[in-house]
Write a protein that binds this DNA or RNA. Structure first.
Lengths: 137, 137
DNA sequence: GTATGACCTCAAGTCAACTCGAGGTCAAGA
DNA sequence: TCTTGACCTCGAGTTGACTTGAGGTCATAC
């Protein structure tokens, strides 16, 4: 064997930027597979590093752990659907983000004292709901 | 007076998409100003609707209530700084989002069985940290 | 030989942003 | 008259994603 180099939790944490407790937590909730134990201590497969990094990046972008899990762990091919949906959602989100950025830039340049009194902010407050979404409660 | 038309909480909720409890909650934590009471019932200024809508849109895009408050309520002009910072942050976030979308699309098209086994996902797992942020621990 | 650091478990705490439930008031309509 | 609906307060519960704390085990460094 080319020495599979199992990693202690500290290395996984260090090379992913997650905290040791977070890695333990991810193991506990099944986001990563249960590590083998050597003398009671966790030894992780190196691939866990990639997985944890993926989780962190995906979280930054706004995926929940549940969504990440369904993308990462789908064995039946359904992950494609999840990903397609997510692409759509992210595209929409990007659209809103761009709107928000544009609006903030306009507000920055329009000379208002405060956002609350800036007429530009109205554009943003108006409903851009056209696609299906929240049912009115 | 042109009848300032104070609104009951239900109208505010209905025209913003927030729930009645959320509007109460926003008042309680000072996200919106305390409504006057008529017979114990809240009557909101119409401008509250714009404010709550703004809050909701901003939240969708990823602002926390705290950030929204600092943008909306800064009387001293510091909101410009907050907004500038936020524009930068949103630009970065959009960058990551685009990366994520691109990666997911590649994965969608690359024929892998699962994301976990897709080499494309490594690109995403690698650190794209170049600007200031987390110190390598 | 003891102290430090990395690790362990298990339970509980935290934080944001709500949400719910119990118990009550009040006005308008059938 | 009775009931429905909109509103009220206050306190507690929820969810997601961790974080912290108490108390303990080892191995290595000084």
């Amino acid at each position: 064997m080319t020495s599979t180099e199992l990693l202690p939790i500290g290395s996984v944490a260090a090379s992913t930027g997650a905290s040791v407790s977070t890695v333990r937590y991810y193991e506990e909730i099944g986001m990563i597979s249960v590590a083998s134990r050597v003398g009671g201590k966790r030894r992780f497969h190196p691939e866990t590093v990639g997985r944890v990094s993926f989780i962190r990046r995906a979280k930054e972008v706004g995926f929940s752990l549940g969504e990440i899990r369904s993308i990462l762990d789908d064995e039946a091919g359904g992950w494609l659907g999840v990903v397609e949906d997510k692409i759509d959602e992210l595209d929409r989100r990007r659209g809103r983000l761009e709107l928000m950025i544009a609006m903030l830039k306009e507000m920055r340049d329009c000379g208002c004292e405060a956002v609350a009194s800036c007429p530009r902010s109205d554009d943003f407050a108006l409903e851009p709901e056209s696609s299906s979404s929240v049912a009115t409660p």
